[in-house]
């Protein structure tokens, strides 16, 4: 026992060589740097609205105006809102889509925008995208208060909503899934953009286009059969419909899609973390 302990003691803490197993993930190290994650979240939140007059009010102004514009334009086009009051319908979509798109765009530039720091100090790079997702989660939490006010207003007035109270406990699960999915996509993109910047251009317009097939402005009920099935395999669309169902009673909610969405998210997470991990080792040479 003593000897093995001694041998263990004299062993090296870090051995670095060019080849390492793709499954050698340093998630333990990410945990060791949890203080850094917290401080980065704090930094993001405190510096976000520095030198603005309206400050954190911007968190509300964005979804309010988008919702009003959507209500007006799509209302003129007489697009279905699944029987939900249009303002509530678009606000739900906008709030959660805002979370997804912000996480995605910000995490997708992890390597490029942090190159100066990454080039000087080593810490597990995963710390940065994780902190982005968390700080946006806090922002989402604040925005949810607006949604709550509008929601309470509509549930007390004549419009009959049928909230699925029993399912409310699942809400955090869907929010977390959106977060994890955006994180996975984001770090996947950040890994491939270090070398080929083309993906940077792709992501900015793709995110606008994908919104239209993610049940943000067009409910799944507008599509039929196969199209709807394919559409709901996308975790954002699936979660969006599920959240709407929980809050209002309409929208698609089925265990099949929850299962598919979970599998897709976890698979993508695994792939992207492995790729990210490979990229972080020598991205300084390619960025």
């Amino acid at each position: 026992m003593k000897i093995s302990k001694k041998i263990n003691k004299s062993e090296w803490d870090i051995i670095v060589s060019p080849q390492s197993s793709i499954f050698h993930l340093n998630l333990k190290e990410v945990w060791a740097y949890r203080d850094l994650i917290i401080l980065l979240v704090k930094r993001d939140l405190t510096t976000l609205y520095k030198q603005t007059i309206l400050g954190p009010l911007w968190m509300f102004i964005q979804p309010i105006f988008t919702t009003l514009i959507y209500t007006f334009t799509f209302g003129q086009a007489k697009l279905s809102t699944d029987g939900i009051p249009p303002i509530l319908f678009y606000l739900i979509g906008q709030t959660f889509w805002g979370y997804f798109s912000e996480c995605l765009t910000k995490t997708s530039t992890t390597f490029i925008s942090n190159a100066s720091v990454f080039g000087k100090v080593y810490f597990p790079r995963l710390v940065v995208p994780v902190s982005i997702v968390i700080s946006n989660l806090i922002k989402l939490g604040i925005q949810l208060s607006l949604l709550l006010i509008i929601y309470l207003y509509y549930s007390t007035t004549a419009h009959a909503l049928s909230p699925q109270w029993k399912l409310f406990i699942l809400l955090p699960l869907f929010i977390a899934m959106i977060g994890v999915f955006s994180l996975s996509l984001g770090i996947l993109f950040s890994s491939v953009t270090t070398k080929y910047r083309d993906f940077n251009f792709l992501i900015t317009f793709a995110i606008q286009l994908v919104m239209f097939i993610s049940c943000v402005v067009l409910p799944a009920s507008m599509f039929n059969g196969k199209t709807q099935f394919l559409m709901l395999c996308n975790p954002v669309a699936g979660c969006m419909e599920a959240i709407k169902h929980i809050l209002t009673g309409s929208g698609v909610f089925s265990s099949t899609f929850i299962l598919i969405n979970t599998i897709v998210t976890l698979f993508l997470l695994a792939v992207s973390v492995i790729l990210f991990n490979r990229t972080e080792k020598s991205f300084m040479d390619t960025v």
């Binding site: 670095v16 060589s17 060019p18 300084m284």
Partner: peptide
């Protein structure tokens, strides 16, 4: 840079015992 792990070596390896802080 290699020793502080901001980039990886092409060949060879190195071993380190203890916590490293780099001040580049």
């Amino acid at each position: 840079k290699i020793l502080s792990r901001t980039t990886s070596p092409t060949l060879g390896e190195y071993k380190i015992k203890g916590r490293v802080a780099s001040l580049l």
